[in-house]
Amino acid sequence: MHIPDGFLTVNAWVPAWLISIGGIGYCLRKATLTLKDRMIPLMGVMSAFVFAAQMLNFPIAGGTSGHLLGGVLAVVLLGPYARAIVITVVLIVQCFIFQDGGLTTLGANILNMSIVGAMGGYLIYNPIRSVLGGQKGIIVGIAIAAWASVVLASCACAVELAISGTSPLRVVLPVMVVSHMLIGIGEAIITSFIIGFILKVRPDLIYKI
């Protein structure tokens, strides 16, 4: 879902960059308030963790395999602001070292996966968790939020492609959303397994609001 260079026109990637810079600037300020100077090494190592976790292939139906995206996983563990920074850092490294996603479209990729995906996922996770309460609330909230964050990010991606005239919205939106609704199921299952495990082993690491 990383949009490469050339797929977006100026009227899509410039606004996306501006929103991302503003959003990440805000998150940086918020995260610094809570983490202080502990933040730098912690965020760095956590970004490397998300990166490594994304390299792990999970077997899916048939011979195919997929990997974790880790968006909501990081929200539950680090909180929404630190999480947005972690995913942004991962995207920057993927862009510059692995050429996964373009440079002009990096703003759009940050907007989709880091801001829309994370904040959407967090806004869904938090109410479910507090309504259901306890461990069950965390697991159910995480599963739904993980699924929704993938779908939301794909919606944002579709809208950006449509604004650029790469393909019309009524076509690209259903194609993207339906395919990511399936991807989201895998993401939801894996994320809830991981959180279930951490709840058992180190429940103190789950982010408290």
Binding site: F49, A52, A53, L56, L68, L77, F193, F197, I198
Partner: peptide, 19 residues
């Protein structure tokens, strides 16, 4: 899938502690 998920969990804890 479950074993791999737990592996990611362990990796997270180790990474956090390393941080």
């Amino acid at each position: 899938v479950k074993a791999l998920s737990h592996m990611v969990g362990v990796l997270f804890i180790r990474a956090y502690e390393r941080g």
